[in-house]
Design a protein around this nucleic acid. Structure first.
Lengths: 165, 165
DNA sequence: CATCAATCCTTGAATGTTCAATATTTTCGA
DNA sequence: TCGAAAATATTGAACATTCAAGGATTGATG
């Protein structure tokens, strides 16, 4: 139950100072880097998601499979960093992937606190199909957005990540 | 079909074809645009989150407040698009913000299916403090990452969003 | 103008994520 | 070598998001 508080007397009359530019500009949200990144990420992620839907696999699982496709064992901690998930989320997602026989756990013989993750044969086969889907998205972007712009954007993003981490 | 089944005898011996470049390159995940965007977004979002923590407000609520700070009523549908949330998520977040007296609902008199959202006085005051925090982040990025690079990155992101939507 | 379709928002159930706490193993200093 | 502290992964409970369905209102069509 909401009463119409006092929406209408928008006091446009106040109209304070002619906007001092330097100390406190007030840009619209669409000019904030954080917002632009969120928006671009959301859109590109959606497109990728749509392609991966052919195989019924969420984007995060593709990342996991892709990282594991080097055949080496990755500890849960390292993997979490690599695929941009925090630990409990990864644990539970891995649980599902183990149920689907896409990956398996092996206790690290050198440090028994660690669990090393490996991709199964089934996981590897799926990875190949997913790679093709992901590459087709990259190709589509490069085509519609332009090779130059794509390369430049990637370069700037890498550099931002370096700076920010 | 490579038989790496069990982890340790990594048969580097198979070593298939010398990698045909054109038809199926296989870049590491760190070269995918989708991944770079996710990573950059995650990092910048984290930093912003950390700053907003002073006021105990999640990033999404800042976006909502910022959009509503124009004083005009925004329908839930429009608002959802503007703040990059889907409808049910927004509804429930708005519920919380109403509990906190930051915003309020008014039924649109011209179309009674719609609900118009407004920022309360309390919400507006908070918005100002949040704006300052967000701006300080932008300033910090511009400083460490460079004005030029920041501007160029924003430009490319806007352009990507245009292309991709 | 009556009805059927479309639009808009919300809800409830299922699902997923996160935080804090726990168990296990390793590391390291006294 | 012993014990405390750190590192690693998991779990359970709290919380948030999503999907599908629903109720209300409006628009369009015959």
């Amino acid at each position: 139950m909401q009463q119409a508080q006092h929406p209408i007397h928008s006091n446009r009359t106040i109209k304070s100072q002619p906007v001092a530019k330097s100390p406190s500009r007030n840009p619209p949200i669409t000019e904030h880097l954080a917002y632009l990144l969120a928006q671009a990420n959301r859109e590109i992620n959606r497109q990728l998601e749509a392609r991966l839907r052919d195989e019924g696999v969420p984007v995060e699982q593709w990342r996991i499979l892709k990282v594991l496709s080097d055949g080496k064992g990755h500890s849960m901690g390292d993997l979490a960093d690599e695929v941009l998930l925090n630990h409990p989320t990864l644990t539970k997602m891995i649980d599902r992937m183990v149920s689907d026989s896409l990956v398996y756990r092996v206790q690290d013989p050198d440090d028994r606190r660690k669990v090393l993750m490996y991709s199964s044969e089934r996981g590897k086969a799926l990875t190949q199909r997913l790679n093709a889907l992901a590459l087709s998205q990259e190709a589509h972007i490069a085509e519609s957005y332009g090779d130059k712009a794509t390369a430049e954007l990637k370069r700037l993003l890498e550099s931002l990540i370096d700076t920010a981490t």
